[in-house]
Amino acid sequence: MRAFTYLTPSAPTEVVEMLDAHAPDARVIAGGQNLLLGMKDRSDSPAFLVSLGGVSELEGVRAADSGELVIGAATTYATLARMEFTGWHAEIASVCGNLADRPVRTMGTIGGAACAADPRYDIPALVTGVGASLEVLSAQGVRTIEPSDFFLEGGGTSLQPGDLLTAVRFPATEAFTTVVFEKFRQRVFDAALASTVLALRVGDGVIEDLRLTVGATTPRPTVCVTSTAGLIGQPVDAIEPVLVADAAAIEVLGPETSNDPPHLRYQRELIKSVTRRALIRATAIPRS
C-alpha cells in the first residue's frame, strides 16, 4: 500500500470540499472492502482517503414523499439485510443478505458497490433492474442520475473526481408487483457469474410493466428489450420462461455461432438458466 493521509469529515458537504481540495488524488473510503484490496496490490494509490465513517447523514433508509425508498450511500449490507421492507422492497434486503460473506457485509456499503461498478457485483444489476436513480452531490450541487447514465457502457461510472454518491433512490412499492433477483456463483462468497433481475407489475392478471436485466456478463448490466417486446398488455400466462430466457441470452451476448469460445457458451447457458429461474419465480406469484 502506498502512503496516504486519512481525512475524517462529518458532513457530506465537507466530504465534497475535501475531495475538491485534493483532486484528483483523493478518494472516498466507505467500507473499504473493495478499495483496500486495490490499494494493497497498488492498482489503486490515492494520496488522500476521505472516510464516510463519521458522516452519519449518509447512513440509513427513509421513505420520500413520492413513496421512493431512499437508501443512504453509506448504509451497509448488514443493515439492509436486517430491514423489514414491504412489497418488492424485501428483495433489496434479500440481495444484500445473500452476497459476499458475513464479515464483508458488515463493512460493505450499497454506495460503495454502486461506485465500484464491478459488473459481477449485485448492486449494479439490482439498481439497473428496477430503474433506481443515483443521487450525487458535488460543489455544483445535487443531481440525480439514471442507471443508464451512471454505469458506462464500457464499464465504470460517470462520476467525476469531487462527486459524492449520497443515496440510491428505489421506486415506490407500487412500481412493481414483484421483483426477483437470481444469480449463479461458484462458491457462496464469490461474485456472480451471471445474474438476472426481473421487475414485474401486474394488474388484473395483465402485465403492466416488465423489465428484464441481465448482470455480470457485460461491462454494465444489460436491459433486455427485444426479448421481452410485446409482453406488456398480455396476460401473465403469456410469458414463456424458456423462450424469453433463450432470447435474452442472444440479446445480451449476440447470436450463437458454432465457433463460440467455451467461456461464451458457458455464459450463455448461465444467462438462460438464471433468467428462466427468475421468470418462473416471478410469474408464479401473480398466477396463483
Binding site: 486519512y6 473510503i29 473499504g32 472492502q33 472516510s51 464479515p103 463493512m107
Partner: peptide, 21 residues
C-alpha cells in the same frame, strides 16, 4: 476469514479494515 474479529458486536475481516476505521 482467519482474521475475523468483532467490532462492537459486528463481525469483520480485520485484514480488510484500516485500524483508523
Amino acid at each position: 476469514g482467519c482474521c475475523s474479529v468483532e467490532v462492537e458486536g459486528d463481525i469483520v475481516k480485520s485484514c480488510n479494515v484500516l485500524a483508523l476505521q
